[in-house]
Design a protein around this nucleic acid. Sequence first.
DNA 1: CTGAAAGCGCTTACAG
DNA 2: CTGAAAGCGCTTACAG
Lengths: 348, 348
Amino acid sequence: MEPLPTAAARPTGSPARIGDVAALAGVGVATVSRVLNGHVGVRPSTRDRVVEAIEALNYRPSSLARSLSLRRTMVVATLLPWFTNPSAVQRVRGIVEGLTGSAYDLMVFDIESEDRQRRAFELFDRGERADGLLVVSTLPPEAEVDRLRAAGVPCVLIDAVHPSFPSIAVDDVAGGEMATRHLVELGHRRIALIGDPPPEFRFEWSRDRTRGYERALTSAGIEPRSDYVREGTRLPHVARAVASELLSLPERPTAIFAASDTQALGAIEAARSLGIRIPAELSVIGFDDIEVAAYVGLTTVRQPLLESGRRGAKLLLETLAGRPVEPLCELLPLELVARSTTGPAPDR
Amino acid sequence: MEPLPTAAARPTGSPARIGDVAALAGVGVATVSRVLNGHVGVRPSTRDRVVEAIEALNYRPSSLARSLSLRRTMVVATLLPWFTNPSAVQRVRGIVEGLTGSAYDLMVFDIESEDRQRRAFELFDRGERADGLLVVSTLPPEAEVDRLRAAGVPCVLIDAVHPSFPSIAVDDVAGGEMATRHLVELGHRRIALIGDPPPEFRFEWSRDRTRGYERALTSAGIEPRSDYVREGTRLPHVARAVASELLSLPERPTAIFAASDTQALGAIEAARSLGIRIPAELSVIGFDDIEVAAYVGLTTVRQPLLESGRRGAKLLLETLAGRPVEPLCELLPLELVARSTTGPAPDR
DNA sequence: CTGAAAGCGCTTACAG
DNA sequence: CTGAAAGCGCTTACAG
């Protein structure tokens, strides 16, 4: 089953292989490979014949076969849940920026369910489909951590922390505290919280922000009330529904801290449709500072989303370049951005 | 160089291969492969031994090697430029939805420059890294069209049209006309247009919308003015700058039609900072109806972004399932959504 | 029911 | 400077 001598002999529909080129040029495949990879030490006349054959057959090497042979793909993969979320998008944008100018291409893989997460790691945990991984807002299952380490796949975590990998994150407890303190300082006492549902992928920052919220309340001498703490996904209608419940409570909160801007926006809409004025009757503070936040004047705790992606990408690039990176956790700064959705607590 | 008999013999760091499992279980690799792929006709006791060896070695087959051998990846790739743009994100969200429940995983690949576009197709045009392609808001170069067809890679276009592939699109000329007519009907005569820069990736809908704009003007007896037609990218500051120029014209337009909501938002910000009231002194209409549009009350021409992704994914799935799909262009409906950024032209 | 061998399409020592 | 061969890690006829 040797390569056939001419292009015409290849069945239509299947691209030429390196053997076809070799046959047409009258050389061995090794020589074609050398020309392809720009190795020195190929006689110019030979090279010319090979180049000619490549063009005649419209040949392009199989990147898959190359990857298998080279054990290198020049691709970086980003694995993240809900990757169409505004904050996730912003991080991805940072990753794209961080990778710009490098030789690596970016592949983004969505993890929407545990099933997809499993499949994602099946695809990537050997480092065959991508040379490095950027895992965003989720933690690999422990078994995958082992595989990744065993296979030596460079991996950087963004918005998640694990002792085995370097990571870029923020202090979520401090963030929750910061947001809540802002409300307390405005005189609010009845402060509700809308958090994310329990971690689906071992992803726990919502819990940390809740802890910060409780801490701030306690140190202000306010007793946390369980009926003021709700959970819901970031789907617009869910966020609205959760906020509506909160706003229909007999003792309605005068302020809401939402664990994300997306949820804060839902709370604002809920208030709007209930005829509750913001910030006169209700203050709302979010988390993230996504692009629309500035646009609609949402008060929020800003975390450097873009920067997190950029830094994560840079860190991964370092590792890929062979510079060993400590599995340290780099904390990015948080900043309170007071805009127009928070104000003094109503009298009474 | 036969597989070594025990796991311990494998160098740490390299995952077990099928040969290691076979050796440990005392069977041939073919048998391991059969067990792995759930083929019938393996004696239960043999199967048990294999399963045991798999677990002992924590073995997971190389998906890359599988792909090479099977010529199938169970992955669908989406190639799109500026994939963090709100409208692109929305389409991707639709694609994710359309793929949900299927056996295919989604990989997203960003095309930000011609260089990346070339690399994207190098990776995907043989159908080795993905079984099917969803090309969004860009057109493959003609040479790639040939390769894709030659290799028989199923490919669906979204927001782009090519005779060789089925596609999901909208009638952009009609859309441009619809937007402009809305302004004309409100009494505007000085109507400006902010379009995208010339197509970077043979991507021409902005031109079509401009054509619709001109057509609407002409049929209203309004002479198109070249100083009213500007181009700029969707980067926020660019959109603002372009709008500012327009609004500083001696004969300032009373209405702006932006080729995208993102640009419309930029125009609104520019007006704001120039102290121009909307819609009293300036009407602004966008295109797309991205999520924030409703939120900020932007009048726009709605195109079914989510639906385009969903339909594209479904179409691709059909093709992948072997049901031949005509290379037809499916046009999705456009709808004018009048909100609060457009109003009657100011007297005089 | 099972294994040896060929094949997927490359790259790269190794030997000339 | 160049080619035959082994290897990357799988799958699958083919022959028992």
